[in-house]
Every structure is written in C-alpha cells, then in structure tokens.
Design a protein around this nucleic acid. Structure first.
Length: 424
RNA sequence: GUGGGCGUAGCUCAGUCGGUUAGAGCGCCAGGUUGUGGCCCUGGAGGUCGCGGGUUCGAUUCCCGUCGCUCACCCCA
C-alpha cells in the first residue's frame, strides 16, 4: 500500500512549517495594520456552492465526492462563495465598509506544476460596501505592503493596474459587442503568451474590425494620459480613466507610487471583475503572478450574497514562498529552546527536573538529556538544539545550591543560585 | 487531459560498455575514560538501485509497462 502524500499535497517538516508560519504571520500583521479582522469558513462545502457561480465545466477541477450521507460536497477551491454567504447573513447589521480577511487552505484537482499545487494557503482580503476609489487604493496598498513586509522593495516587484471599465469602453468603441467583451478580455489577457495575430483574430471574432483590432493592440501599450488623449472622447473611457487616475494618485499619496504601473493589457481572465484590476509581479519575470485582485461589484449578489459593491485580492503561499526563497528572504529557523539542563550524575536527576519545570513555568523553553550521557555529549546536544544557555547541575551544584550557567555563544560562565533562577 | 525530462542511503550525487559483499560527501548514532559544545580522528547504522514484467547463465545496468516527481501546455478561483 502506498502511504506517501497525495500528488500536489505537501508535508510540512519543521523547516517548511517555519516558512509557512512566517508567511502567514506577515499576512496577518499587515492585514490587521489596515484594520481588517480575520474570519474563516468550512473547508468542505456543498458542491452547488461552486457550480452555481462558475458553471458545470469547473466541476472537473474541484476536489469533490459524495459523502456518507449522500451529499455532493467539494473541498473549497476559493473563498469568495463562502465569504459571500457569511457576509450576506450579517451584512444588514454590520457597519460598512466591512473589512475582512482570511487565510484558508484551498484545493483544486489539477496537475501540479511550478507555483501551482493541489492545495495551498491563500490570503483573501476584501472590502464590502464601498464603491469609492479610496477603497480601491486601500486594497492595492495592502497588497503592496504585504510584499514589503517580506522585505521586497520596488526594484523587486511591481503592481500592474488597470480598469475593466476603461478597457471595456475601448473595446466597445472599436466594435466589440456586449457578448464579445468576455472573450475579448480573455484574449487581451494572453498578449504576453500568444502571438499578436492570435489576439487580433480573437478580437475580430469578438466583433472588432481588423483595423479596430490593430488599433486596440496599439492602445494597450500607451500610458494612461496618452490613452485619454487618444480615446477620451468616449464617455465610458473618460470616466474610467479619471477614476483609475484617482486610484493611482491615492497610491502616490501613500508614498507607494514607485510600486505602481498602469498596464492597459492587464485585464485578468476572470469574468466577474467590474472595475479596478491589478496583479503583483516579480520584476525579473521568473514567476507567475504573486497576487491578483480587483473590484467585483456584482459578484456577491450573483452568488446569492448581498447586493453590495466589493473588492479584494488573493495571494497564495506557493509562488510567494518560491520568490522569498529565490531572493534569500526566508528567515533563519528560530531555535526551539532557551536552556539546556546538564545532569552530571544520576543523583542530581530530581534537582534537574525541579529546575527544568520551574524554568518552564517561568516561560523558558527548556530541554535536558533523557539518557545519562556524558557531560560532553550533553553540551553537544545543547549546542545542536541551539540553546542560549547550558546549565550544569552536578554534585557541587547540588551541595551548594549554585548552578553553573554557560552562555553557549560566548562560552562565558557564571554561577547563579538555583533559587534565584527559579524566582525572577 | 497532452507532451518533455528525471527516479541509486535522510539529503546532494557517483557508478555499472550486463558480472562477486552498490560507493562518496553531508547528515544521523557511538567512541576518542573519570565535569564542557562548535574543529578534528575512529567506528557504526541506514539502500527491495521507484514498482511490475520481459530478454539473459546472470539485470541497478538492456526492453516494455506502470507509478511517482518535475517542467511546459490547457486552465486559473
């Protein structure tokens, strides 16, 4: 029988667990600095919760099964439906805007590859009930500050930002039909992966003329002000551009301008975004997107939640972990103990246990040798455990009540009363 | 779901043009005596050579299958 872990699932040995704890700790710290509160939902949900939102074709990518009660269930592949339900149940009574975050473990049934497993932890941070542009900048700023919290700077990553309304307005102005908007967004999203001809073809299939499609590709390379100069006579474009301009201006006021870059070719593949969209990318381009999000004003109502504007982002631990590793930003593993008590002879065992437990009661992390090995071996064990101090208890110490305390890093030794050690 | 690469010790790998008991470094454990770690020396444990089948006197080595890992595609919540 094969008892190894399932494909795409990870064993977290202490070394990996330390990195995971670090990542989650930074996420929580920054989220709470922004005034967000943490929530969580069930990892297992009714299958329908996801089918209703995304359609039947998504079912193949779900971890799903029938439980012993005959219920069709799925391991959660994303947090938004659960979030919508929870917010919906209490939205009426909550002061707006709602600022909630979560760090769920999510699952998908897909072939694992770089930066993509069948299981991962993903920070979800959302604001509900606010349609103003300050909420958009708040969300993007939080995402940027997450990466800053890991020690990454503006030369390491960039926040590419755009607006669905802006791009949608341009597409419409160039002949793309209402129904063609989704496919056209998806085509633009692939500009960096597919050939220009491929994208041109798709844009024309969505309703644009050949000339219109070419013009759109050209527009996708412009700066925001250039774009307004060229296409500002389209009301939708003018409004969305002005709003996006304010969002970017807010980020500059935060002092985060160096991290932000307008990118009209960024649209994100997902159909439900309605306004601001953004992604965080490694500047060297070695990894897939580190984080993505945006405004989804109609989604909550569409999945059975409240009819409230909302926006947020997700950031997974896999790509982020790879990036931190590659940049040498994984903090060293902290030592597990403070004091190692060395027992010289079996006669001192009881005193060693009393000292050990007394120090533990005071909050010290304490270990000692289970076997009666030589003092040299015990020092070696203290060293391996990364102990700050080794405390020797032998016949002399037992007789005088004064222990020998050796500071491992420096080798300095001092004699301290055992009673004193247990007080302080 | 499709295609490429790779599976030898806990880790990183060597090796075998088919041939006795499959190796190294690191790590781990134990010694280097009677109360002092890091360095050093000595010794030890640890491998169904991913698994199954085939060819052969003989397979870790060659062939087929399979599973796993990995990278890319598809897709991306």
């Amino acid at each position: 029988m094969d008892l190894s872990s399932l494909p795409g699932f990870r064993d977290f040995y202490p070394e990996q667990m330390a990195l995971r704890k670090h990542i989650v700790a930074v996420w929580r710290s920054v989220a709470e600095r922004y005034g967000f509160v943490e929530y969580d939902g069930p990892p297992l949900e009714p299958l329908d919760l996801y089918v209703r939102k995304s359609g039947e074709e998504i079912v193949g990518q779900l971890y799903r099964f029938t439980d012993q009660g005959g219920r069709e269930v799925a391991l959660r592949p994303e947090m938004t439906p659960s979030f919508a339900r929870m917010v919906g149940a209490r939205a009426g009574g909550l002061p707006k805007p709602i600022r909630w975050y979560s760090v769920p473990q999510l699952f998908r049934y897909e072939r694992p590859q770089k930066g993509r497993l069948r299981e991962h932890f993903q920070l979800n941070l959302d604001i509900v009930g606010e349609s103003g542009d300050l909420a958009d900048s708040e969300i993007v700023a939080a995402a940027i500050d997450m990466l800053r919290g890991f020690g990454l700077a503006s030369e390491d990553f960039v926040a590419r930002i755009s607006d669905r309304g802006l791009v949608g307005g341009l597409l419409t102005a160039h002949g793309v039909s209402e129904a063609g908007l989704g496919p056209a967004f998806a085509a633009l999203d692939k500009l960096d992966r597919e050939s220009e001809d491929w994208v041109l073809e798709r844009l024309q299939a969505a309703g644009a003329s050949e000339e219109g499609a070419r013009r759109l590709l050209h527009l996708a390379e412009l700066e925001l002000d250039e774009l307004v100069a060229v296409a500002g006579d389209v009301p939708l474009v003018r409004e969305a551009a002005a709003r996006l301009g304010r969002v970017i201006q807010n980020l500059e006021s935060f002092g985060l301008g160096a991290y932000v870059q307008f990118d009209p070719s960024l649209v994100r593949g997902l159909a439900y975004y309605t306004g601001t969209v953004f992604e965080l990318w490694d500047r060297r381009g070695e990894f897939r997107a580190i984080c993505g999000g945006g405004r989804y004003d109609q989604l909550l109502a569409a999945v059975g939640g409240p009819d409230l504007p909302a926006l947020g982002f997700g950031m997974g631990d896999v790509v982020l972990g790879e990036l931190l590793r590659a940049r040498g930003l994984v903090p060293p593993e902290p030592s597990a103990i403070d004091d190692y008590i060395i027992c010289v002879e079996p006669e001192q065992r009881a005193l060693v246990l009393r000292l050990t437990h007394g120090l533990r009661d005071r909050g010290r992390r304490v270990a000692y040798d289970f076997a009666s090995r030589s003092v040299g071996r015990q020092f070696k064990a203290a060293n391996q455990a990364g102990a700050e101090r080794a405390i020797v208890v032998g016949p002399d110490e037992a007789a005088t009540g004064v222990a020998l305390v050796r500071t491992m890093a420096s080798g300095e030794e001092a004699r301290l009363s055992i009673e004193k050690l247990l007080e302080a």
